[in-house]
């Protein structure tokens, strides 16, 4: 028996919008810790890891660990039928091949049930080691989104370099080149508008902009984004989900031939 009641149902809607174009099918894992997902894109270039902690739900009942295989496009279709202010409850029964999404309007005058078929998915759970990163950049998520979008009109890849000068995003394409440098800026009205650069050592890595642009679909989930870079690891692009957890995207770098 599984029953998860999420008062801020829009969070789940936003999570699906952020993941459905990257991953087709995925197992949602439910345990005492929370509601989580780990999945790679079909080419194994990117990985998404989601955690919505149990404490963030108004009601969280999960009698035993359960894994539910879902087609994210179909799940998104169903969640789009929920209002932005609706409370969403996810319900499942042991051994059932369906999951139910219940939507309640804020004043309880409309209650909807959507039952979705589950699917068997061979999950490949990966161990993600705790790591020291060479540099961690925290910046407004809208700014990161703007940079990725702007650069993708010029080139296909971006070089992200962190030095003591700041973080530089560079691209080149048939029409020319572009460089955007963001310096640390803590003198802002609100903490989420700050750009904070922690650098242990300079780092420079190349990534496919197509994937970074896909990650920025998570922008509505958080005012700020954290980009963690190490020359030995995939970049981590993390959006914190207020009071609940996070969505993290990992992207393997381009490697010099």
């Amino acid at each position: 028996m599984l029953e998860l009641r999420l008062v801020q149902g829009s969070l789940l809607k936003k999570v699906l919008e952020a993941t459905k174009d990257l991953v087709t099918d995925a197992n949602f894992d439910c345990s005492a810790t929370g509601f989580s997902l780990q999945a790679m894109d079909s080419s194994h270039v990117a990985l998404v890891a989601l955690l919505l902690r149990s404490e963030g739900f108004e009601h969280y009942r999960c009698d035993r660990n359960i894994s539910m295989g879902m087609n994210l496009n179909n799940m998104s279709k169903m969640l789009k039928c929920a209002g932005n202010d609706d409370i969403i409850t996810i319900k499942g029964d042991d051994g059932s091949d369906t999951v139910t999404f219940m939507f309640e309007s804020p004043n309880q005058d409309k209650i909807s049930d959507f039952e979705m078929k589950l699917m068997d998915i061979d999950s490949e759970h990966l161990g993600i080691p705790e790591a020291e990163y060479h540099a961690i950049v925290k910046m407004p998520s809208s700014e990161f989104q703007r940079i990725c979008k702007d650069l993708s009109s010029i080139g296909d890849t971006v070089v992200i370099s962190v030095t003591k000068e700041g973080v530089k995003f560079s691209t080149r394409g048939d029409i020319g080149t572009a460089n955007i440098v963001c310096r640390q800026n803590k003198t802002v009205d609100k903490p989420e508008e700050a750009t904070i650069i922690e650098m242990n050592e300079p780092v420079s890595l190349t990534f496919a902009l197509r994937y970074l642009n896909s990650f920025t679909k998570a922008t509505p989930l958080s005012e700020s984004v954290t980009v963690s870079l190490s020359s030995e690891l995939p970049v981590v692009v993390e959006y914190k989900i207020a009071d609940m957890g996070y969505i993290r995207f990992y992207l393997a770098p381009k490697i010099e031939d």
Binding site: H44, V45, L47, A252, K254, E256
Partner: peptide, 14 residues
């Protein structure tokens, strides 16, 4: 020239 790296070369299946 560069080639695209793969997540599975960084993270191992468990």
């Amino acid at each position: 020239d560069s080639k695209q790296g793969n997540i599975l070369s960084f993270f191992k299946k468990i």
